[in-house]
Design a binder for these strands. Sequence first.
DNA 1: TGTTGACTTAGACACTGTCTAATGTAGGGT
DNA 2: ACCCTACATTAGACAGTGTCTAAGTCAACA
Lengths: 139, 139
Amino acid sequence: MSDLLARLRERGWRLTAQRRVVAQVLDGEHVHYTADEIHARAVALLPEISRATVYNTLGELVSLGEVLEVSTDGRAKRYDPNTHDAHQHLVCESCGAIRDVHPSGDLIAGLPSSERFGFTLLGVDVTYRGLCADCAGRA
Amino acid sequence: MSDLLARLRERGWRLTAQRRVVAQVLDGEHVHYTADEIHARAVALLPEISRATVYNTLGELVSLGEVLEVSTDGRAKRYDPNTHDAHQHLVCESCGAIRDVHPSGDLIAGLPSSERFGFTLLGVDVTYRGLCADCAGRA
DNA sequence: TGTTGACTTAGACACTGTCTAATGTAGGGT
DNA sequence: ACCCTACATTAGACAGTGTCTAAGTCAACA
Ligand SMILES: [Mn+2]
Ligand SMILES: [Mn+2]
Ligand SMILES: [Zn+2]
Ligand SMILES: [Zn+2]
């Protein structure tokens, strides 16, 4: 996390209290918070931080490639600090739990050229949907 | 499309002018409109149709399995009448064009059981991202 | 320590989707 | 053909998510 702050300083970022707390909230594994969840956690650390600053900071972190945007449902985007390790997502339809997962094989290669319609492929997002053990048990 | 209307009548639906025009707008291949795009096209056919009715009708068609919801970006959901044929989507990052595509292999099998964390898998949504031939050419 | 341009803020605004109360009507019963 | 009435539609308020602006603030550097 302080690695992140060091990288940002090298890129000319002013290190404000607000940016520090956003970085702090995003520190960890399997973190997939919405912008408003990040704002709520940031407010607990720095009460006067505004929603606009959280949105601004997240947008900048995404542009810099330090955080990924994930849209697993049709609702709010989620912000994922795990950029080191290419991964996909497994989502519980019932409780919304999200896990990072690593499918086998080359996902891009799975799309035959006859199905590419002349597109240049840049990436692929996969969302596996199911029920987590807890929710399946409560059936 | 009249097949669709016949199925809906059998399920006890009242066939109103509004429902007919929504069905008509959704008739076709590679159709992936947002609710408001569907509303705009429906208004051209039946000027007094309301946004609420379009949303209501789409929600019912989804519940009945006659239309699929697709979330390819973090924006508005899109409605896909192509339910006969299981498929995934290829999206142009630049212009937003969407194509139906058919990846090879079993996508669910691509997630090893060691990566399932006890979840019961129900489905998988794949979005291939790239640039269409036109947009890549304009680079 | 003073200066300055980048940063933050509150709140307005836009887009997407849901809900309600009042009104309209499709389709079965007569 | 006409009535009923339960179901459908409507306008607009409201909620969630995200963007933008204008005014005030401050981190970094000299
Ligand atoms: Mn992740
Ligand atoms: Mn489709
Ligand atoms: Zn669950
Ligand atoms: Zn394109």
